[in-house]
């Protein structure tokens, strides 16, 4: 097992997170079972104070999770220097069977924690704090996803094998049979890109008629097709190379780190679109703001990826 300083930092913080989230978990269970707004018992007063601690812990974890996610990608990038065949983070992540799962879990947990925090903000704004039970139940469930992520991450780093040869992103993100992602490449580019823009149009429609169900559904579609179309189509225009599909190489300085910006806007847009809308069903008055933020970030994303394509065509007169 390789123990680079970066891995040690991540594992140490994982340990801290596990410790604190376990406390938050136990407290959330207590809150769910015993919370009674109208009670004047000592237990209720204690619970009110403990609900603060839960909020504090989750804020702490979330504030660190976001930069840590980027740091994880960076760590995988540096590890590519010692894992044979890997040229960037993509190869390292894929060198372990569940590497991709780990990445998806990390993303999912960002959404889950973000959702909890959004709910929490709405909750404490009200004098009655009406969502304590919902918050606690939600965290009780999200906790298991979080633990799964940490366990997977520990297993990931301990099973990294420097002598096993892995594929680089060129092979991985291609139609070659060796790649586990080759099924993506079975679909035609024009189909995927059409679905991508269609889901965006659906989102605009949902926004204009202010229908949360349509908006939510379109965001889910948008998230999926945005990622797939980025890998299949748009990334090639960023790299100006028809065979380069890697979503990780976008983060490198050669491309001015445009990947960070793209992923940030995509995350924020879909986060407000999905989580924001869900929360609005519970709490009133937030839906407009959520939709506006979401449509803003998603539009920025669409503009940038489209811009790369259009600029390329204008510069060169041909498509890739």
């Amino acid at each position: 097992m390789t123990l680079t300083p970066e891995i040690i930092a991540i594992l140490m913080l994982d340990g801290l997170f596990l410790f604190f989230s376990s406390i938050a978990f136990v407290l959330s269970l207590k809150l769910y079972w015993y919370w009674d707004r109208d009670a004047t018992s000592l237990l209720q007063y204690r619970l009110e104070k403990e609900s603060y601690l839960v909020g504090l812990i989750i804020k702490y974890i979330f504030m660190l999770k976001v930069p840590l996610f980027l740091f994880f990608i960076y760590t995988c990038d540096t590890l590519s220097g010692i894992i044979t065949g890997a040229m960037c983070a993509a190869g390292v992540v894929n060198s372990v069977d569940f590497g991709l799962f780990l990445l998806l879990f990390k993303l999912l947990n960002l959404y889950l924690f973000g959702f909890w925090l959004l709910l929490h903000v709405r909750d404490v704004e009200s004098e009655l704090q009406p969502y304590i039970r919902q918050k606690s139940l939600f965290f009780g469930i999200a906790f298991f996803f979080f633990v799964a992520e940490i366990v997977l991450e520990i297993l990931f780093f301990t099973s990294l094998n420097i002598s096993k040869i892995v594929s680089c992103c060129g092979t991985l993100f291609s139609a070659s049979t060796q790649s586990s992602l080759s099924f993506l490449f079975l679909m035609e580019n024009w189909m995927i890109v059409s679905f991508f823009y269609a889901s965006f149009v659906l989102m605009l429609v949902g926004f204009m008629v202010k229908n949360s169900a349509v908006y939510l559904f379109s965001n889910l579609l948008f998230l999926f097709f945005a990622i797939v179309s980025l890998i299949l189509f748009f990334s090639t225009y960023v790299y100006e190379l028809p065979t380069h599909h890697c979503p990780f190489c976008l983060l490198q300085s050669d491309y001015y780190g445009v990947g960070y910006f793209l992923y940030a806007t995509l995350f924020l847009g879909t986060f407000y679109g999905i989580c924001g809308v869900v929360i609005s069903t519970l709490t009133q008055g937030f839906i407009l703001r959520a939709m506006r933020l979401s449509i803003f970030f998603n539009s920025v994303y669409v503009l940038i990826v489209s811009a790369y394509v259009v600029v390329y065509f204008l510069k060169n007169g041909v498509w890739l």
């Binding site: 930092a9 140490m12 913080l13 603060y52 504090l56 930069p67 960076y74 540096t78």
Partner: peptide, 23 residues
């Protein structure tokens, strides 16, 4: 990245240790 690493190894640990006493 080195400075980020140093930051991650020190500041969050300290903040974590004072969180519960502060509460």
């Amino acid at each position: 990245p080195m400075i980020v690493l140093l930051f991650l190894l020190s500041v969050p640990v300290y903040i974590g240790s004072v969180m519960i006493p502060s509460w």
